[in-house]
């Protein structure tokens, strides 16, 4: 087998494998932070929009000022309310605990 094309093919395979491995590692590195950010987003949503899920906070005028800019957080918060009956299940799933 000609050596040069084989080495070229091998190099391409190694680079591809490295790219995939790199993407997986980056994904793993941020997984926990992403989960943390999602929870912080949820907490922020509850703090600002709590009035809509039965929590009387914050002062209503703060809610009203920010409401037009928080459609994404509003949807996330309502979704979370629906899964609120099994928060531990959700947490275990994120942390990969069987």
């Amino acid at each position: 087998m000609p050596i040069k094309p084989f080495l070229k093919w091998l190099k391409t395979q190694i680079v591809e494998a490295f790219k995939i491995s790199d993407a997986v590692m980056r994904g793993k590195a941020v997984e926990t932070i992403e989960h943390e950010v999602a929870e912080l987003d949820n907490i922020f949503g509850i703090l600002v929009l709590g009035a809509f899920i039965g929590i009387p906070s914050p002062p209503i005028h703060i809610t009203m000022e920010l409401l037009p800019l928080m459609n994404k957080e509003f949807d996330i918060m309502l979704d979370k309310v629906l899964t609120a009956h099994d928060p531990l299940g959700h947490l275990f799933s994120v942390l990969g605990i069987d």
Partner: peptide
């Protein structure tokens, strides 16, 4: 209102900082 807003800004800044890391 300022007490609330300052706390919310601190939390929001923390969220944004983490999003930048990601």
């Amino acid at each position: 209102t300022l007490i609330w807003l300052e706390e919310l800004l601190t939390l929001r800044s923390e969220i944004y900082r983490k999003k930048e890391i990601i």
